[in-house]
Design a binder for these strands. Sequence first.
RNA 1: GGGGCCGUAGCUCAGCUGGUUAGAGCGCUGGCCUGUCACGCCAGAGGUCGCGGGUUCGAGCCCCGUCGGCCCCGCCA
Length: 585
Amino acid sequence: MYRSHPVSDLFTSPPGTPVTIAGWVQTIRDHGGLLFIELRDRSGRIQCVVDAKDNRLLEEAAKTLRDEWVISLHGTVGMRPEGTVNASVAGGDREVRVTQLTILNSAKTPPFPVGTSEEVSESLRLTYRYLDMRSPRLLEALRFRSELTALIRNHMTACQFWEIETPLLTRSTPEGARDFLVPSRLEKGSFYALPQSPQLFKQLLMVGGLERYFQIARCFRDEDLRADRQPEFTQVDIEASFLTRDKFLGIIEELFCDIFQKFRGETLSRPFMRLTYDEAMNRYGSDKPDLRYDLPIVDLTDLARNTQFSVFTSAVAAEEGTVRGIRYPGGAALSRKEIEDLTAWAMGQGAKGLAWIKSETGGLASPILKFIPEEVQKGVKERLEAQPGDLLLFIADTRKTALRILGALRQHVAERAGLIDRAKTSLFWVVDFPLLEWNPDEKRYEAIHHPFTAPHPDDLGILSETPEKTRSLAYDLVLNGTEVGGGSLRNHELELQRRIFDLIGLSEEEATRRFGFLLEALSFGAPPHGGMAIGLDRLAMILLGRDSIREVMAFPKTQKGSCLLTEAPSPVDGGQLKELGIRLS
RNA sequence: GGGGCCGUAGCUCAGCUGGUUAGAGCGCUGGCCUGUCACGCCAGAGGUCGCGGGUUCGAGCCCCGUCGGCCCCGCCA
């Protein structure tokens, strides 16, 4: 027998319990004749004692042990003598008195300290991921993720959703992200693509009458990486038939209530807040604002018109021109240099400049005040609800640019001013996204969500005349300023789907060539349906408070998409390429 | 495609204005030690300063290129 208990069970075992435990040697403290072996398994660590005066041979064997060797120990649980209790660790009040030691495997000296909190470069940890995994930090993340996945699976199954797998070898759909391609041997010159998401399949499942589907689905996108983006990642993919948008959102809300109850002990109130896209953009300059703090963006265009400040007046005179501002609580304390840095930061975001006014106990202060009439100053102060000690910041630009920069500035300011309460949860829906967006480069409309998204029924009348003003039935779920999920109701009527394809400049032949199978499916009695995809990795990352998605994946890739452990991607030998009919240029 | 930060012993780092033999702590190896828990004490080994080129009497340090890691913009329906 290798073991009778996981280590953490011993923390509550009564003294005298005979136990066999197995794991890795965390450390050995050799006092010459008396040895302490700290044994680690995935559940925890326990101190084990070997005493030469009880068993000299055992003590000699124990002396040969080294860190990270794999051993099995037999002994009895005992309480530590008075004065030797370590209150700072779990199980620090007891120890295992060893009577038998089996060496299961030796180990080379690890390239970095294993299982400690010491910081080691991430690239080294990725190269030896299996060693890094032995640390509580990574074990906790992987255990949490497993429990999260289990809860989602149980919840969805209990709600009558069926878990269905969809193909990983599928066809390329050039709309959207870049595909990873897989060459076909049987049909040389043709390629499969790895799915960016199971989007089309889940709609086909609805046409197939499955009514409620979900999947913990791996997705692949060949785009540049970020701290929260990997080339392969996991989505909780969901689709359902015969549900209105609000009914469907309710189902997702129940899932998130379950998640927050179990993992945060937090009871979320339903329904979740619904923010329209327009509200989110106008008030917070982002379609995924962090509402753990408010700090709204304020429109000052009408006031700016009545100044002699040419930056403002010329911006306002331009098409779509606007002046908007934001409060930086406590920002009046910033030095000239700090304000310059802030300006440089804003310009890095694409701002042409950053106008500012300090709100002090004595009144306002700023180099631009001389261009601003008294009553306009008063209006600005009131509208921004400026308190003494605040710094007021202004961007004059087109509406779109001004909002985007102020949205970024809002986040930046909140971080700097320490306005973000980490204990808070901000979870809400953003709804009524626009359906389409004009792409000036390609001179055509593009789907904002994806081309299967249904237009808002109230806007069907304006779809043809002003496509860009048409709202859609798309929705995003935003958690603490991160989009954790998004979806939409789909076009289940063939004619409407054809109209959308037409609007995004997809000719009938092209639409048939790419999505003919879907269009045909829609013609065979597709039910009203819609769904959503939740980013499982991101959700786990946020719930654990980690700042990188790599922290919640067992084997993540680097920013250049390589796996330092397996050294993928790698060249392949000529024979393999020949078989596939591929010649490298 | 673009911007920024980083690369010195197994690990984490220091290394001044370019100066002679590149250091520390931890780890490792050997020895001692019977209540430690970052055990302690003694001794020892350990370096392609990421790589290539250049400037210089002289480069870990300056310049150019390159490789790798991280963060960001673009990109990610």
